[in-house]
Simulated scan of single mutants.
Amino acid sequence: MGDPAAEGGHVDAIRVMVVDDHPIWREGVARDLGERGCDVVATAPDAPAAVRIATAVRPDVVLMDLNLGAVSGVTAIGEITAALPETQVLVLSASGEHADVLEACKAGALGYLVKSAGAEELLDAVERTARGVPVFTPGLAGLVLGEYRRLAEGPAPARDEPAVPALTERETEVLRLVAKGLTARQIASKLVVSHRTVESHVQNTLRKLQLHNRSQLVRYAIEQGLAD
């Protein structure tokens, strides 16, 4: 998904897949998103079907429940994000348990909402997720941030381990703003540079860090304490 074109070009609707084992809830969410401009390209009732269908239709965003029966949604998240690095996963679950949130994020989910979220809040979350911006129900973002920081702490790398490639001052500045949830156009405006320059810095940073997408970039920034 790209940012809306400033030149007035056509902007494609966000392609969404809804995964939930309750058919009434699943179809209701799909209908609400469709009525608000999203292109709901598929739905799925369980984890195996979610992986199979997502791989075929390649949505921008997978809206994923966790309690899906025999196979957990966490398993599906891991398989989908591994197979489709450009697809973002947003969890929509009845559970707000810390363990569930952390497992989902470790598996590759970019955000996590509880099902008490309203229709407009959900639409906003889907739109932000499609842009690679992490979205969490209030109170859960700090939990995830704290866990990433805890995991980032550990013994110093051995002397013979290759060092992480150094980022330039501007690349670090852009990375910090990406981690704060700003779009490329917002970053360009803030730094008074072109949109293409920002995208170039993002791509250079991804290449240097050997990462594949913005969600991995955000996680790296959190681990390095750049999201403060």
Rank of each mutant, 00 (worst) to 15 (best):
G9K: 10
G9C: 01
A13Q: 06
R15P: 02
H22A: 15
G28R: 04
V29D: 01
A30T: 13
G34K: 01
C38M: 15
D39A: 05
V40W: 02
A47F: 11
A49W: 01
V51S: 03
R52I: 02
I53D: 01
A54P: 09
V61Q: 04
D65T: 03
D65N: 07
L66T: 03
N67L: 13
G69R: 01
A70K: 13
V71R: 14
S72T: 11
G73K: 00
I77D: 05
I80K: 13
P85F: 10
V89P: 00
E97T: 05
H98C: 00
D100P: 05
L102V: 11
L102R: 02
L110R: 03
Y112F: 09
L113F: 09
L113W: 07
V114H: 11
S116L: 10
A117D: 11
G118N: 14
E121V: 12
L123Q: 01
L123C: 05
A125F: 04
R128T: 08
T129R: 06
A130M: 12
R131F: 09
V133T: 14
P134A: 03
T137R: 03
P138H: 04
L140K: 13
A141S: 06
L143Y: 01
L143R: 10
V144C: 02
V144P: 04
L145F: 11
L145K: 15
E147L: 04
R149M: 03
T168A: 07
E169W: 03
T172R: 13
T172N: 12
V178H: 11
L182D: 08
T183P: 01
A184P: 04
I187T: 08
K190H: 13
K190E: 12
K190F: 09
L191E: 10
V193I: 15
H195Y: 09
T197V: 11
T197A: 15
T197E: 14
S200T: 11
V202S: 00
N204K: 12
R207C: 00
L209P: 12
Q210N: 13
H212I: 08
N213T: 00
R214K: 15
R214S: 15
Q216G: 08
V218R: 13
R219P: 06
A221F: 01
I222Q: 04
E223N: 03
E223P: 01
